[in-house]
Every structure is written in structure tokens, then in C-alpha cells.
Design a binder for these strands. Structure first.
Length: 417
RNA sequence: GGAGGAGUGCCCGAGUGGCUAAAGGGGACGGGCUGUAAACCCGUUGGCGUACGCCUACGUUGGUUCGAAUCCAACCUCCUCCA
């Protein structure tokens, strides 16, 4: 089915958000009448969200923009159990304190993307610890456990992955899917929520919720999944060598965030423009015909648009300018990421590799050494050939910075204080 | 509960007493080419020291040995068969 009537489905289908749906017809009807209330759940396993969650956030954003009510579900309760989906080994159990702290950080990520409030299509945020924490074991088993068969549960991908890789899957984790199914039911009961969305790795969990709703309350719940994104080179979205790309500026500076998107593969640019920006499709389709270096403009647009949504337009444009100065115009930009260093440390001069090691650009002195030996390190754009070369505060340029570069792309300024 | 097999670096995978910081591949990073791309070619890929070197590492904890990823014991996990 491709001729959707509802704005919601038309848009997200054109933009590439759809992987699977439990019932397109019903979904299309409800969406046309703006009668959808959908939720997406977010784990509280990290102190903030990263770029990998952006797809789900954009999905919720379109959902709201087309007149529907989104529910952001914080997994305060389910995180205590741990979702085995897509993980080849179990994670360490997080304490309640950490989970709660993480939740606070994650909540902040949504404010730029969704309107929260009490109006009809305003988003609401709830925490499944509110009901999961209170469950009593025997009652829960008797009431809901009878609706799940092990026969079916062990066929789920999340379970199969562990079995195939001969990794343990604890009974605790095995329960996750039951709890998520119960979440869906509970949200349906409390908020008349009638749809769950998520990445395609959540398909099994979503189906469980739909079936539970039908068996217990005779509900007709819907499920919709989006493709699990990897870049064309196969890497997971939002991960780089130096770690995840976080949505929080404290963890990932806006300039770095912008760079992440700027460095998108040629093959992915249009796909990403559709998914992660609101640039209209006509404009994107122009880029689809372009091959070669002209695509760089599309990448810049992608980076600036994504950064605008996340951090605001001003910051996005600033990041764009820094990039143009640094890369296109070979100008010095004092707005590159900056690290402070005490001037005293440098007056006597330190070996180049040690200076490099003082920064986030490398993880160890050995790595710094290797990098320099391989010709990948520059100070003030000049290649440093000897890792022992003494660097002093004389390297400070007229703007009061020392510019360090690793490879062609990564730059860092040192400010002496 | 019993019998047998297995657990290696970011991932896959070789290694069954010293020559092993551990083959090979993938990934990642750096260099070259280029467009801050892809593909390709070259190099690097545990930490500390300028370096002969030292430390940490082959599921976990102990043991045997001059010396252990390699042998032994216990424990954890997985697989196969039996109950």
C-alpha cells in the first residue's frame, strides 16, 4: 500500500521512515482523523541521547506536526532490567540513582524537537517506573504471564542472537519483552495510546504489546517501525572512533556535531536530508541527480539543518562558518574547539607528543607518538616530524592560540592561561 | 545431576609449555590520491620509557613450572549427548 491519505503516513513514507507496520489501513484512517496517540520508549542507559536516537525523535516530531499526540516514554523501570535487543551480551546493571540521573539528561534532549504541554497534540512524557516498580510478582505472572508462550519468546531475534552467539541471556533480560508489552498496554489504558513506534529492532517487542492488548482488553493497537540505520560503510549511526555523537553540547560540541554530519558519505546525503532535516523533498530531489564534489553543498546543508534543530540556528551557522574558514578558506578560526592549558606548563617547552597527549585528540602517549611518526600531526598547520620536538609558548599565534591538528579533519585550539 | 567439548585483542579467528603483545582477516586511525567523499595503494593498531627494557593482557580465581594463552584445580558461561 503506497497511496496514503493521511499527511503523517504520506510524509514519513516519502522521507524513508517506514520499515514495517502492523496495519497500514487502520493507521492511515486514524492518522487522517488525527486520532493517533503514539509512543516511543527511550532507555535510560546513558546520560543523554546520541545521534542514533535522532531518527526516532524526528519520527515523533513529524507525528506531532501532522496533528497527533506523541508520548515520550522514559524507561526508568525497564532500564533496571535491560533490553537485550540487538546486544550480543548483557550490560552491567545500572543503579536506580544512575538511571534517574540519566533520565534527567535525556529529558532535555526533547525540548527542541517536541512541544510539550496539555493541549490536544502536545507531547507528554511519562516514566514506566511509575507502574513497573509497583508490580507484584505473582499477581503479574498470573494476570499477564499466561498470555506469553516461551515457544514464541525464544524465536525473537533478541533471543536468537544470544543463542546463536552462545552468549548468556539471563532470565532477568528475558523478561524485558514482557515488560515492554505491558508498557504498551498500560499506556493504552492510561492515555488511550494506540500505537507504538520504534526502530526495527523493536519489532518483536512491539508485536508482543499489540497481542497483549488484544488478549487482555480487546484493543486494536498498532505498531510502526523505522529502518535501523547504518551508514553506507556499515557503521552504526552516531558512533565515531572517538565515541558517540551526543545531542548534548556538553558532551559533543556543536562544531563536532556539525562535522559529523558534514562528513556523511555521498551515498547517504539525500537519505539523511530526508530523515534528519525538514528540507522539502523537491529541494532534496535536486541533489539526487548530483554526483561529485557539488554534493559538498548538500552535505553542508545537511549539517547546518541538523545542527539547527538540535542546537539552534545561530550555533549551526557559526559551526558552518568555522568549517568554511578552516577548510575552504584555510583561514585561522578562533572558534574551533578550544582547550585551556596553563602557560607555566609550556614555558620550558614540552615534547610535541606530550602536548598532543594533554588533549582529547589522542588517548595515550603511545598513540600520540605513532601519530606523529606517521606524519599525521600538525601544530599551526606545520607538520611535526619529530615527536620529541620541544613546543613552548612561543608557538602561540597572534590570536593567542596554538592550533593542533590530527589528520586533515580534526582540529583543536590550545588557549594558554 | 552425569559425560564430553569450548571461552583468545574492538570484532571474527589461528595458536596447545619458551622464538607470542599473540598469525590472518575485518574494523578503526594516519599517509598518498581526492571533494573534509567512495574506491584503491602504503603504514599503524595494549600501556609506560629516547632506547637494550619494564608492566598489563588470552572467561574468573588459585596452583604446577626456571618459564603458561598453552598443564592442573575450583568457579562462571556456552555447546552436544545422557538423566
Amino acid at each position: 500500500m503506497t497511496n496514503f491519505q493521511s499527511n503523517f503516513l504520506k510524509i514519513i513514507s516519502d522521507r524513508g521512515f517506514i520499515q514495517d507496520c502492523s496495519d497500514f489501513d487502520t493507521l492511515d484512517k486514524l492518522a487522517s482523523d488525527e486520532k493517533l496517540i503514539a509512543y516511543i520508549g527511550f532507555d535510560c542507559t546513558a546520560p543523554t541521547l546520541h545521534a542514533g536516537s535522532l531518527l526516532q525523535i524526528m519520527l515523533l516530531r513529524w507525528f506531532q506536526k501532522t496533528g497527533n499526540k506523541p508520548i515520550v516514554l522514559m524507561g526508568g523501570g525497564t532500564t533496571k532490567v535491560g533490553d537485550p535487543s540487538g546486544k550480543d551480551e548483557s550490560r552491567k546493571l545500572l543503579t536506580s540513582e544512575i538511571i534517574n540521573k540519566n533520565m534527567e539528561g535525556i529529558k532535555k534532549c526533547f525540548s527542541n524537537y517536541l512541544e510539550f504541554g496539555s493541549k490536544k497534540s502536545d507531547a507528554i512524557m511519562v516514566d514506566n517506573a511509575d507502574w513497573l516498580d509497583r508490580l507484584s510478582y505473582i499477581d503479574f505472572l498470573r494476570e499477564y504471564g499466561q498470555h506469553f508462550t516461551i515457544n514464541k519468546m525464544i524465536k525473537f531475534d533478541s533471543v536468537q542472537l544470544r543463542l546463536e552467539r552462545e552468549q548468556p541471556l539471563s532470565f532477568l533480560e528475558f523478561n524485558y519483552m514482557v515488560l515492554q508489552a505491558f508498557d504498551f498496554l498500560e499506556l493504552a489504558r492510561r492515555y488511550k495510546c494506540n500505537m507504538q513506534m520504534g526502530g526495527s529492532d523493536q519489532w518483536g517487542n512491539i508485536i508482543n504489546g499489540i497481542e497483549l492488548g488484544r488478549k487482555t482488553d480487546g484493543l486494536n493497537l498498532l505498531g510502526l517501525t523505522s529502518p535501523l540505520l547504518t551508514s553506507s560503510s556499515g557503521a552504526k549511526m552516531g558512533k565515531t572512533a572517538s565515541g558517540a555523537i551526543w545531542l548534548d553540547q556538553e558532551r559533543t560540541p556543536a562544531y563536532e556535531f556539525w562535522q559529523y554530519w558534514r562528513n556523511t558519505d555521498d551515498q547517504d546525503v539525500c537519505k539523511f536530508l530526508k530523515l534528519f532535516t525538514e528540507v522539502n523533498l523537491d529541494e532534496i530531489s535536486k541533489f539526487e541527480k548530483i554526483r561529485g564534489s557539488e554534493l559538498n553543498e548538500a552535505k553542508i546543508m545537511l549539517a547546518t539543518e541538523v545542527t539547527s534543530l538540535c542546537h539552534g540556528k545561530e550555533i549551526a551557522l557559526a559551526s558552518e562558518k568555522v568549517a568554511r574558514d578552516t577548510f575552504s578558506d584555510s583561514k585561522f578560526s578562533s572558534d574551533l574547539p578550544t582547550t585551556n592549558l596553563s602557560r607555566e606548563d609550556l614555558t620550558a617547552g614540552v615534547p610535541a607528543f606530550e602536548l598532543l597527549n594533554k588533549t582529547e585528540l589522542v588517548k595515550s602517549k603511545a598513540e600520540a607518538r605513532r601519530l606523529i611518526k606517521g606524519g599525521g600531526f600538525r601544530i599551526n598547520d606545520k607538520i611535526i616530524e619529530n615527536e620529541l620536538e620541544a613546543i613552548s609558548d612561543a608557538a602561540e599565534n597572534q590570536d593567542g592560540f596554538i592550533k593542533l591538528s590530527v589528520g586533515k579533519k580534526r582540529h583543536l585550539l590550545i588557549k594558554l592561561i
